[in-house]
Amino acid sequence: MEFDDKVPIYYQIKTAIYDQIISGQLAPGDKLPAIRQLAVSMTVNVNTVQRALSEMITEGVIISRRGRGNFVTDNAQVVEQLKQQLITSYLKQLYDRLHRLNISDEQMIAELTVYIERQGDSNGNDIED
């Protein structure tokens, strides 16, 4: 995994695992790989993985079962909440940046609509290719 060294590594590990949960790569109830295995696959320190995991456990997204390992919660509500949080934070970033450029709310919506339509076109073409 490539890291941005300006951002705390534990935070990037957390984000990467949350992304996998929201995108469905990790399903509710799935068992996470062992800590050392996660560390090796991400090329990070075991302690840093441990820190990311304990935060995810505190946030209720990962459930630790003693002697059995760490699992993705099977509480759909928690995952849905996480998804909403992430969507809101990405939208906030986008909104703040465009707002700083003095782009009006109406124009933002219009631009986003056009952009999504174009994306849809190119995605469609990709499938046909």
Binding site: D4, D5, K6, V7, P8, I9, T48
Partner: peptide
């Protein structure tokens, strides 16, 4: 290391 990143917003390098 993560404290440096968190506090300074800089890479370790």
């Amino acid at each position: 290391a993560d404290e440096i990143r968190e506090e300074s917003g800089q890479s370790i390098e």
